[in-house]
C-alpha cells in the first residue's frame, strides 16, 4: 500500500510540470498582451513596464525564470492588472472560500446523491425511485447558471427566506452558504444518484450476491455488508471528476451569488488578460485537483483490496 501511495505521489510531479509548461506557452503565444489593451501607452512607458515584468527577455529565459520562481519559491509573480498585488496574495485571500464552498458541496452531493441512489435501486420502479430519478434528471439537464438565478428569484426575491447574495460574515451568518452550496451540489447530486443507483443494481445482480442470499443471510446484511462496498466504488472513482466539475462550477456560482472567491478572480483575470494571474489560477486549481485525484486514488486503494496487492 505504502509503495502504491509513493508511486502515485511521484507521478504528480510530471503532471504538474506539464501543466505549468503548457499554460506558460499557451499564454505567451497568444496575440496581444495585458498592456496592448484599450488605451495606448506611450512607447517608453510600455518599455519600462515590460522591463519591470521581464517581458523584454527572450521567451526561454522568461520560462526558466518562471519555473524557478514557481517551483523553488512558490512565487507566482506580481499581478499585471491589480497594481502592487502579488498573485500569491490574491489567490491565498480567495482560494480558501472557494475550496470551502466546493468541499461543502461535494459532501452534500455525495451524502444525498448516494442515499438517493441506493434507495432508488432498492425500491426500483416504486415511487421513491421515480421521485429521485426525476429530480436527478433535472439536476443533470438544468445548467448551474439557470438553477442559481431561479432559486435566487424564488427563495430570496419572492419568499425573502435567504439573502440574495453575499458570503459568510459575522452579520449574515452561515445562511449565505445555503443557496450557493445547494446550487453547486445539485448537478453532482444528480450524477451520483444515478451512478450509485446503477451500480447498486448491477451489484445486486452479481453472482456473489446470489451466493450471499443462498447462504441464508438477512436482506439487511446482504445489502449492508455485501452490496454497498462494491457498489460505492464507482462513486469513489467519480469523486475526482466531480471535484473538478465543482471547482469549475464554482466560477459560475461565485458570479451569481457574488462570492469573493478565486473563481471570480479567475474570470476577471481572463477578461483582463492578466497573464500571471491566469497562470497562477490555473496552477493552483490544477494542484488542488491533482491532489484531490491522488486522495481519491488512495481511498479507492484502501477500499478495493485488489488494488493494494498489485
Amino acid at each position: 500500500m505504502m509503495k502504491f501511495i509513493i508511486r502515485r505521489l511521484l507521478s504528480l510531479i510530471p503532471t504538474m510540470f506539464i501543466i505549468i509548461t503548457l499554460s506558460f506557452f499557451l499564454i505567451h503565444i497568444a496575440p496581444g498582451g495585458p498592456f496592448s489593451g484599450e488605451k495606448k501607452l506611450p512607447p517608453h512607458v510600455l518599455a519600462n513596464i515590460l522591463k519591470k515584468y521581464h517581458m523584454d527577455e527572450p521567451l526561454g529565459a522568461q520560462y526558466l525564470r518562471y519555473l524557478n520562481d514557481v517551483i523553488l519559491h512558490f512565487d507566482l509573480g506580481p499581478s499585471y492588472r491589480y497594481e502592487d498585488q502579488s498573485v500569491n496574495g490574491l489567490i491565498s485571500a480567495t482560494m480558501p472560500r472557494s475550496i470551502f464552498l466546493g468541499f461543502v458541496s461535494l459532501l452534500l452531493s455525495v451524502a444525498l446523491g448516494g442515499a438517493a441512489g441506493i434507495i432508488s435501486a432498492l425500491r426500483q420502479n416504486k415511487w421513491q425511485d421515480y421521485l429521485s430519478m426525476s429530480v436527478a434528471v433535472i439536476g443533470i439537464s438544468v445548467p448551474l447558471f439557470v438553477i442559481g438565478p431561479v432559486i435566487q428569484l424564488i427563495f430570496a426575491m419572492q419568499l425573502h427566506w435567504l439573502p440574495v447574495t453575499g458570503w459568510i460574515n459575522s452579520r449574515a451568518g452561515w445562511v449565505t452558504l445555503i443557496m450557493p452550496a445547494v446550487t453547486l451540489a445539485f448537478p453532482y447530486f444528480a450524477y451520483i444518484a444515478r451512478l450509485s443507483r446503477g451500480s447498486v443494481l448491477e451489484v445486486l445482480r452479481s453472482d456473489y450476491i446470489r451466493t450471499a442470499r443462498a447462504k441464508g443471510l438477512k436482506e439487511s446484511v446482504v445489502i449492508g455488508k455485501h452490496v454497498l462496498k462494491g457498489a460505492m466504488l464507482p462513486v469513489v472513482s467519480y469523486l475526482g471528476p466531480a471535484f473538478a466539475g465543482i471547482i469549475t462550477g464554482s466560477i459560475v456560482v461565485e458570479t451569481v451569488f457574488q462570492i469573493p472567491g478565486v473563481g471570480r478572480i479567475f474570470v476577471q483575470s481572463a477578461l483582463n488578460r492578466d497573464y500571471t494571474l491566469i497562470m497562477g489560477d490555473i496552477i493552483t486549481y490544477s494542484a488542488v485537483l491533482v491532489f484531490a485525484n491522488f486522495l481519491v486514488d488512495v481511498i479507492y486503494g484502501f477500499l478495493d483490496p485488489r488494488i493494494a496487492y498489485k
Binding site: 453472482d207 451466493t211 443462498a214 478495493d304 483490496p305
Partner: peptide, 16 residues
C-alpha cells in the same frame, strides 16, 4: 440446503 455455483471467480465477494 446449500448451493455452489458455476463460476468461482465471481461467486465470492471480492471485497471481503
Amino acid at each position: 440446503i446449500s448451493m455452489i455455483f458455476q463460476d468461482p471467480m465471481t461467486s465470492l465477494n471480492p471485497y471481503l
